[in-house]
Design a protein around this nucleic acid. Structure first.
Lengths: 134, 134
DNA sequence: CTCCTTCCTGAGAGTGGTTCCCACTATAGC
DNA sequence: GCTATAGTGGGAACCACTCTCAGGAAGGAG
């Protein structure tokens, strides 16, 4: 019942690009980067690709403060969370076992089942802090 | 330097409505509810009101899964988090001291400053679970 | 109470991210 | 190769949200 996406030039190029990028990027940014690389992929195709990739767990999705979806290919394929620099976008993948245990416990205490959690951290990384101080 | 918004019929009606509503609601939903009540307030005004209210900490904002902003007047005016039923929208305000301590600690461990956190929980409440089981 | 400044309101136009439509093209199994 | 089928792309459509700007109301000064 699992549908395997067809292997096309476009998907390959998008995956290649994602390998080279370390920060969360929007579909539009990815599209622009592809064009800058000289490859032509339609914007709609980029949207379809990142969407399908995220459904398969191959990329992670975040929503920015202004509602834009941003994507990133993470090292860890298993469930994890992110600590993102609000200035440069540098991203650290973090384990949140402790916070997740707390979430499950709080949910249970209020009689809730199947509790999903959204946990994301945003801060200023040491590099950007040093740059700002100068 | 704090700007106090002028007191108008529209803002009063929106606040009144928010008092009566217990779930997170979008600006558009609030607008519709106002019209249903017989009061006419422009959609733009609803957007402006909830935005200003949220900036003043009088209402809480959440982003739904599809990127829509939803608003709710909470009991606690101090910082807190939410456990929301994915089926009926029932909302419980929760303390997250434990999770916040964890967030600050993780941030510090990676050299990040001014770490903000987004922590929201979604589950199925006992009432909805019972209803689904029947 | 009245005037006047300033802010608020609202209808519609504009914006921007995302999805849809659909004719065309490329993939993968045979 | 051939064919069925899925993917592609450009533009239109969509939708939440914001802006514009002229008219109206709030509230302080006198």
């Amino acid at each position: 019942m699992v549908v395997i996406p067809r292997q096309t030039r476009q998907r390959a190029e998008i995956l290649d690009l994602l390998e080279d990028v370390d920060e969360f990027r929007s579909a539009q940014q990815l599209h622009e980067m592809l064009r800058a690389r000289g490859s032509s992929v339609g914007l709609a195709t980029v949207y379809r690709a990142v969407q399908s990739l995220s459904e398969h767990g191959d990329v992670d999705v975040l929503r920015t403060e202004d509602g834009e979806s941003v994507y990133r290919r993470c090292e860890q394929r298993s469930h994890h969370h992110h600590l993102v620099c609000r200035s440069c976008g540098r991203t650290v993948e973090i384990e949140a076992g402790q916070a997740e245990a707390w979430a499950a416990q709080v949910g249970a205490a209020h009689g809730f089942d199947d509790v999903d959690h959204t946990i994301e951290l945003v801060g200023t990384c040491s590099t950007c802090r040093a740059a700002a101080a100068s």
